[in-house]
Design a protein around this nucleic acid. Structure first.
Lengths: 215, 215
DNA sequence: TAGATTGTTAATCGATTAACAATC
DNA sequence: TAGATTGTTAATCGATTAACAATC
């Protein structure tokens, strides 16, 4: 039974399904059952079937799920194949790392350009990606459709840069800074990558473990 | 009422509380109520009081929470101040970015050294941090207490490096690779930073929005 | 056909919210 | 004292799990 609005928890599990399915694909596995998937992902078979049933029927009784079909379905649900294009703000180490190591293309996203304020970088290029001055972005966006802005500038420029990005009409920001961008405007989609949230969770569990060990 | 085992959801909210409390502190706010916090974090006052009550009583009726006290309490719960030390594996762009921009020190964590296989990097240093050969790590760990290994190596070296780290006796890995490290050993703490999970969630919401706009 | 596994409905569990007495 | 806000208990809501008829 297809559902109208999907719980965020389900959305957050989809990328994990995708990853697992691609692993299976690499191993030339043709077919997978909800219990097999569950074992790999540490989820119950029930939950997996529930999750998929939010989007339709992808399995076959007595057999399981065809890995290729399910992978493609999950990828499509996640918007891979929508042909999104992105630009990078901030061509520092983090920006470099993302361009080099994060497979934008693998997720169906094309990176059109990078923007920075550093005159030493402007005019150069990162691999295939040209680096322009931030001030050129308004013009650039008028000529090119930009779906996603990747924000990897130093913290102190984060908010003003994000405002500029939103003003120019980009609808989604992948935010690697600590700045709070949700208030910029109603319709702006913001996805935060908060390193500190992750680090502090680790720190918490580490200190919990130490407490237990010390009595 | 202090609780024995804290729900993961609560743990994951603590860093957000910390961030907000430090913002308030920067604004010289002395006192904050659960409703004020709730407005900033988009949580109900009830939930905030429930969350804090897992750890003890930090407020005062009719007044609210003293920002300094609450910040310190949250920081302490999260293990800031435990004096953890970390090492970095992989001194590439991502490693650089983390050392330069992520405030390990701000979270009470000291970065002792970086390890890489690239002969061009080994022997150099990143800021104050010396870069050693990966093979030197066993010896290093014998001389220095290492609580956390930050794993920022290329994907193909991730699993073997992580095994090595665990063998040497480090108990926690902050994992920036796509490799699945949970199976390495029971007691190893692993905290994943999966860029792709975050990106794909954004991609999903973007495509949802477009579907709505197009009818 | 027998065995396996789906999709879905119902039951359980846990997390969020509401309510309120306690008290600063 | 009156007003405000906590900590906590109870109510609600949503998410996970279990069960099972349908069917490949």
């Amino acid at each position: 039974m297809k559902r109208e609005s999907i719980p965020p928890n389900v959305i957050r599990r989809l990328p994990r399904y995708l990853r697992t399915l691609e692993e299976l694909l690499d191993g030339n596995v043709e077919c997978v059952s909800s219990s097999q998937l569950g074992r790999r992902l540490n989820l119950t078979p029930s939950q997996i079937r529930q999750d998929f049933s939010c989007f339709g029927e992808f399995g076959q009784q007595g057999y399981g799920y065809n890995v290729v079909l399910l992978r493609d379905a999950v990828a499509s649900i996640l918007g891979i194949g929508s042909g999104y294009s992105a630009v990078l703000f901030g061509a520092g180490n983090l920006g470099h790392a993302l361009l080099k190591n994060f497979g934008f293309a693998h997720y169906g996203c094309r990176v059109l350009a990078a923007f920075d304020v550093d005159p030493a970088l402007v005019g150069s290029s990162l691999g295939e990606i040209p680096v322009y001055s931030v001030h050129e972005f308004a013009g650039f966006a008028a000529e090119n459709r930009v779906d996603i802005a990747v924000l990897a500038v130093p913290r102190e420029f984060a908010l003003s840069t994000a405002r500029y990005i939103a003003d120019v009409g980009v609808g989604a920001i992948w935010n690697f800074t600590n700045a709070e961008l949700r208030d910029i405007n109603e319709s702006l989609l913001v996805e935060d990558v908060h390193f500190s949230d992750s680090f502090l969770a680790l720190s918490y569990y580490l200190s919990e473990r130490q407490k237990q060990e010390n009595g």
